[in-house]
Amino acid sequence: MTEGNFVDYVKVHITSGNGGKGSAHLHREKYVAKGGPDGGDGGRGGHIIIKGNKNLWTLYHFKFKQHFKAGHGEHGSKNRSTGADGEDIYLEVPLGTVVKDTDTGETLFEITEDGEQKIVAKGGLGGRGNWHFKSPTNQTPRYAQPGIPGEEKNLLLEMKVLADVGLVGFPNAGKSTLLSVITSAKPKIADYEFTTLKPNLGIVEYRDFRSFVMADIPGIIEGAAEGKGLGHYFLRHIERNSVLLFLIPADSVDISKEYDILLNELKKYNPEMLDKERLVAISKSDMLDEELMEEMKEELDKDIDVPYLFISSVAQQGIQELKDKLWNILNE
């Protein structure tokens, strides 16, 4: 999914370099009639290497270039001179990027650390020169090995947002508003569904100069795991979060049912998501009076098996309590 400069998956075509040919040269020198074989080895072809870069947060730099070719190894030459290796090509990606082979469907690896390097296509080995093949019975071999061809692959680079807390909820549940209040992030906020078309990250400042990262994930709808709405594109971003904060508006017809639907979509996409710590926040609770809030608490105590609290982003109600709960869950 892309919006503006945010690109979280891209397909690329890569080709590593061919190995250089070995040389079949025979030594020639004044006053040396038969110098024997002295052909050098060919150089290695260039690798295609994926490298993690903590300063990148999107795959936008692959938007206008998707074909990458490493350099070929140079051929061997006389005096047993080995050809130069081909130039390696580095593809820098943000942390949390998963690399898949689109031809086989195999997930190759995942980049999670800054500076981490993985060779995704090895350059071909250089051929051996003829001096390797001399023997008492074959003192002047006039042949050498050719270089080995490089590899060619089609890859899918898929980024998963790295955050401590992920906001989960239906479209227009108030996730972007909460993120704008609790962090310094400035997400797009409007009164219509799917206002958010990309994950937004924000740093939540806590007591004593401590902080944690919160991500506003675009809204999930029923059937998202099957690809309805935009859910299919964004459910993967929730996989990286340590804590899932379910945001459900106080004016929902049935809060526990909404929670069950959201939980079911996560389960269908990846059952391991249910192992994450969960917290439910009832947003827009400034609309509720004390009596109505008590009635809702009685129902929620029966229907929801995880901690919950009432908040209002606009009225700044329960925000500090929410920070405290999230911090405690993250640092248990």
Rank of each mutant, 00 (worst) to 15 (best):
L230V: 10
Y206N: 11
L235P: 00
I220C: 04
G229L: 06
S256D: 14
G231Y: 06
D254M: 11
G202L: 04
P249W: 09
S242H: 12
S211E: 11
R240Y: 04
Y206G: 07
E222W: 06
S252F: 06
I217W: 02
E222M: 07
E226I: 10
E205L: 13
I238F: 00
V204G: 03
E222S: 15
I238P: 00
E226N: 13
A225R: 04
L244N: 05
R207V: 13
E239Y: 08
G202Q: 02
G231E: 08
D251P: 06
G227L: 02
K257Y: 10
L245P: 00
S256Y: 13
G227V: 02
P249D: 12
R207L: 14
I221Q: 03
E222H: 12
S211Y: 10
Y206E: 08
D254L: 10
G229R: 02
E258G: 06
A250K: 02
S252H: 04
I203M: 13
R240K: 13
L247F: 10
L201G: 07
A215V: 11
G231D: 09
L247N: 11
S252W: 06
D216Y: 06
I255E: 00
S252G: 08
K257R: 14
F234D: 04
V253F: 15
M214H: 04
F209L: 13
F246N: 05
D251I: 05
Y233D: 05
I203K: 14
G229I: 03
Y233T: 10
I248S: 01
K257V: 05
M214Q: 01
H232T: 09
R236I: 05
D208P: 03
E239Q: 12
Y233G: 09
F234E: 06
L245Y: 05
D254C: 14
R210F: 13
L245M: 07
H232D: 13
I221M: 07
S211R: 07
I255Q: 01
H232S: 15
P249Y: 08
Y259I: 05
E205G: 13
L230H: 07
G231S: 11
I217E: 03
N241K: 11
N241L: 03
F209Y: 13
F246D: 03
A215C: 12
F246V: 02
Y233P: 00
S256Q: 13
Y206W: 14
G223K: 10
A224C: 08
E222Y: 09
F209A: 14
M214T: 05
Y233K: 15
S242A: 14
K228L: 13
Y206R: 05
E239D: 09
V213Y: 10
E226V: 10
L235Y: 01
I248Y: 01
S242W: 05
L245K: 02
N241Y: 02
S252A: 14
H232P: 04
I220R: 01
A250T: 00
E205N: 15
F234G: 08
A225E: 00
K228H: 11
I221W: 02
I203S: 09
I238V: 10
A224I: 04
P249F: 08
R236D: 12
E258D: 15
F209T: 12
G219C: 11
V213W: 02
R236W: 02
